[in-house]
């Protein structure tokens, strides 16, 4: 946005200068881990690193809203038919599981202010992933990770459904495939146990 609007960039830099921060030159290109390893040289590196493999683990990709939309600002992939997570899951030796809610909202932004509405959103991807036979879900978004993992207990309380769906962050999925130790991947910090996944992979 700043690169396309010299007037705005001027105003921002004037303000930065006034508080003693160096000017923004517009030379930084913001990239996401998801984009880096789903295409190009990063993808080649991923394939080498993921030598341990996911052994056909059925993984449901969950993208998160703000890595897809607004697509005219992000522009990495078709926000309605994204492919990058699937490509990474496959490169890691897993089997991507398809389901409609993978591009929808997890409810996190309003999970404190409007919990009921948020839970109504959160249940969709988890329920659909379960129905599609996923062993785990993976997301590149830390906040989606938090709501999908920690708020499952609240879904149980509200609906009686105890999904026990393990939720992996994208970096953890790659870490497992690359053979990192469970302790390095901080699985002990998960609310829903990741053990079933690890057992399946005989880690």
């Amino acid at each position: 946005m700043l690169k396309g609007d010299p007037e705005l960039l001027g105003r921002v830099n004037e303000n930065l200068q006034r508080v003693g921060i160096p000017a923004y030159t517009g030379s930084i290109e913001v990239r996401h881990l998801l984009w880096e390893i789903s295409d190009g040289p990063g993808y080649e590196l991923l394939k080498q690193a993921a030598h341990k493999g996911l052994k056909g683990l059925r993984v449901a990709p969950f993208y998160g809203c703000q890595i897809l939309r607004p697509s005219k600002l992000l522009g990495h992939e078709d926000p309605d038919r994204p492919w990058s997570l699937e490509r990474i899951i496959e490169a890691c030796g897993g089997e991507p599981v398809d389901y409609p809610a993978k591009i929808k909202c997890c409810g996190f932004p309003i999970i404190q202010a409007r919990e009921e509405t948020a839970l109504g959103e959160l249940i969709q991807p988890i329920e659909q992933a379960v129905e599609a036979g996923a062993d785990a879900m993976v997301t590149p978004c830390p906040l989606c990770h938090l709501s999908l993992d920690a708020w499952q207990s609240k879904l149980k309380k509200a609906t009686g459904k105890d999904f026990q769906m393990p939720i992996l962050h994208l970096s953890q999925l790659v870490g497992v495939a690359a053979g990192l130790e469970a302790s390095e991947l901080m699985f002990k910090r998960h609310v829903v146990s990741v053990d079933p996944v690890l057992e399946k992979l005989e880690v």
């Binding site: 809203c65 607004p70 909202c105 409810g107 932004p109 309003i110 959103e121």
Partner: peptide, 19 residues
């Protein structure tokens, strides 16, 4: 306003650029 879940579907779909 505070019930908006910031999914950005509205912005993505709007055919007139309302955002």
């Amino acid at each position: 306003i505070w019930e908006c879940t910031r999914c950005y579907f509205c912005t993505e779909r709007c055919p007139k650029g309302v955002d």
